[in-house]
Design a protein around this nucleic acid. Structure first.
Lengths: 177, 177
DNA sequence: AACCGTTGTGTACGCTCGTACACATGGGTT
DNA sequence: AACCCATGTGTACGAGCGTACACAACGGTT
């Protein structure tokens, strides 16, 4: 009976949940699949997260934190360049390579549509992102830019199309006064 | 054994699936729940739709058709007024009352993120909506407006916030040249 | 009228699921 | 050193699931 007294058990389970959701989607999440991925017994996942929704909340929060760091690096405090171009380029990099991570983060985010428990976390995320963007523009524009970028990403991801950076830059420029 | 030889059996099942998904979300869809809602035996749903994904495709297509009609009425061919104001008002009406239908349509639409089989249907929908919008503006702007409206709706639906029509009108005005 | 393929029906199998619960263990407190 | 509670483990139960399949009924074709 190895690994008794595992002080990072909880974190290990969250990481496993993110891997499972990235591979099989939220639909693939269950106490058992997460337990197997984390290599812990079934009872351990149910002990730390009584319901799957609790686990989802923790996973979404962690995914948001990771992406927040990326965004913070992209938007250093003193930046002064062409914001629209910077954002369009960032979207291109984000959507360019392997989309597994992108799909995971969007799926967790969109899950809030049907799960009220996730909505506060989703709101935290948009607030945080808007605050970061507001370092380069006004708050109203920041939220608008977020909305437009969400919409552009969705059009690409949902229809299976390809991302056009020049197109995105043009539209963002229109929106930023 | 009533209702043998039911020529509208297939349609009845699709309608039932939409009701179930509206009430319990896509997660609540199963051959059995749909069969119960449609008041047909289990074998009947599996006969007409071998997989749940087939049923999802049919449901999404039908939901899109309904919403397309609404949009077509909103954007009559000869319209000449303030497009941004019209769209902002339409969003307000759509999001204003009971959001069950809104959530259903978005959930079906967003399901394409993880289900490639739904992506062509999602693409059909955006193409159709863009074509309708293009009667009042240019094609590029039409797609941009769609993206922004999607993003605004998501911010409202995902964070549990309220819709601000004046805010939406302002942003749409910026985007429409 | 005979036939046959589409459509409709009922049931059973094996699987995964959430949940519950009894028991083991070990570290921190007293 | 004794104790206790948070933590960890293993197993079992009942429910719902997709799927498969044998059989029934019906309508169009011949």
């Amino acid at each position: 009976m190895p690994r008794r007294h595992d002080p990072e058990r909880r974190q290990r389970i969250i990481d496993a949940a993110i891997r499972v959701a990235g591979r099989d989607g939220i639909a693939g999440l269950s106490h058992r699949t997460v337990a197997a991925e984390a290599d812990v017994p079934l009872g351990s996942t149910t002990y730390h997260f009584a319901t799957l929704e609790e686990l989802l909340v923790a996973a979404l929060r962690q995914a948001n934190e990771g992406f927040g760091k990326v965004l913070a690096e992209l938007l250093p405090d003193g930046g002064r360049g062409d914001l629209a171009a910077d954002l369009a380029r960032a979207l291109g990099e984000w959507l360019g390579g392997d989309r597994t991570g992108v799909e995971l983060e969007y799926e967790l985010y969109l899950a809030a549509l049907r799960r009220p428990a996730l909505r506060p976390v989703a709101a935290e995320w948009t607030d945080q992102a808007a605050a970061l963007l507001a370092r380069r523009t006004d708050p109203v524009t920041a939220r608008a830019v977020l909305a437009l970028m969400d919409g552009i990403c969705l059009q690409v991801l949902l229809t299976g199309g390809s991302y056009d950076e020049e197109y995105a830059r043009t539209l963002l420029t229109r929106l930023i006064p």
